[in-house]
Design a protein around this nucleic acid. Sequence first.
DNA 1: CGCATACTTGACGTCATTCAAACCGTGTGG
DNA 2: CCACACGGTTTGAATGACGTCAAGTATGCG
Lengths: 232, 232
Amino acid sequence: MNLACAECPVRDSAACAVLSEEERDALAAAGRTRVLEAGEMLFAAGDEDAACATLVSGALKVAAFDAEGNEQILALVHPSGFVGELFAPFAHHDVIALTESRLCTFARPDIERALEDYPALARALLRRSQEDLLASRGLMELAGHGKAEARLAALIYDFASAASKSSCHPAQNFELPLTRGEIANMLSLTIETVSRKLGQLEKMGAIKRTGKRGIELVDPAMLQDISGRVLV
Amino acid sequence: MNLACAECPVRDSAACAVLSEEERDALAAAGRTRVLEAGEMLFAAGDEDAACATLVSGALKVAAFDAEGNEQILALVHPSGFVGELFAPFAHHDVIALTESRLCTFARPDIERALEDYPALARALLRRSQEDLLASRGLMELAGHGKAEARLAALIYDFASAASKSSCHPAQNFELPLTRGEIANMLSLTIETVSRKLGQLEKMGAIKRTGKRGIELVDPAMLQDISGRVLV
DNA sequence: CGCATACTTGACGTCATTCAAACCGTGTGG
DNA sequence: CCACACGGTTTGAATGACGTCAAGTATGCG
């Protein structure tokens, strides 16, 4: 099945947005849409010539596994994000769907040719790559600093901001896109600690848990304060 | 003072290596070399239109500071590495020289024009950016997993590999490029814990400390085993 | 209904932090 | 030349945070 760029929800925000109509059509001819179930893997660490993809809808995680088989989440990918290592001979990490996800995939040779043919695409991917780098460093800041409570507060605040449309205010009500276990390994904690600290944050009146995944931000300022991050 | 690309030690490995002679000369005309003392800052978080730079020799750190003024190291930059945020309106992190460093700096407008003029440069920077992203995720893996001893062992092994010329074997003798405090904050530990664990690694016979910064790898396999990372 | 999966909660142990003091190499001034 | 201060480091003892183990509670699915 071919791509329907005209109806693509990320046609204005993904990397291919910089292309002209004709260029995009040409690129689309090489691409394939793919739908992943929650938990399904796009490619695994060690895969050779793994495809690259733009995420159209849903959410992905980039993860590594250590010697004991414990997962560590290294990055989250949101719609219009790009995954895949363009220059490495093989993938270094696993990429797995967190929820049902729709992707626009490209074989490595096709994307390499496109980079040559469309300089604007290369610049767009450069920009995106730098944003990914920034996000990665942001996650390091988040995960690598302070006590469990502060890290959890920071993560919740980040998710609230990501869930909001207005981009300046965090959302008041939203669903955590991750299980407790996934939150735990993003923060280098255990499931139990995450659960306990969530309880504490609720008791302190910073948040309220609704159902398993739902979060209501009762006191965003308190949350930000607990997170120990500088106010912007 | 202008650039002397002909004698540049990273002329074949930096991003500008993809340019032709004439193109490089044109770009060099816009660049300036700059030498930083150890501890000197290239630019600070929040700087607007901070310059971009290729590191010619020395070493840099990319760091963030939290509310209490604690530094967190987010990345190390080695010769031929590129620093600077090309698209963000202001710098998100501090960039500081670890040792005396020589850089080749470019003003933002100049580098932006070069990206338009030389598509190969954009592709080269894309490649470098993806490598940086990979390195960042590698650091997350390193810092975010397992016990203090395992993280320290992994970091030492990484430095040994980086210090080696042969790229497949780690160096047997090398100098840590960081102080104890810098090691500590890369690993989210305290200075004291780093010192203690170094002592333990030495007592176990994995390494030997020579002077303040010197490390001798007595038993690399043991070190890798302690680090809990999968053998390649 | 019964099982599986995710989450919560409690009791206990371990490991890293904290606080404190001493150490060492280096540079400075008397 | 020695005394001294200073930054980086090492070491020790006590506290406390997080992990571990274990049990118990939802929620959903066959």
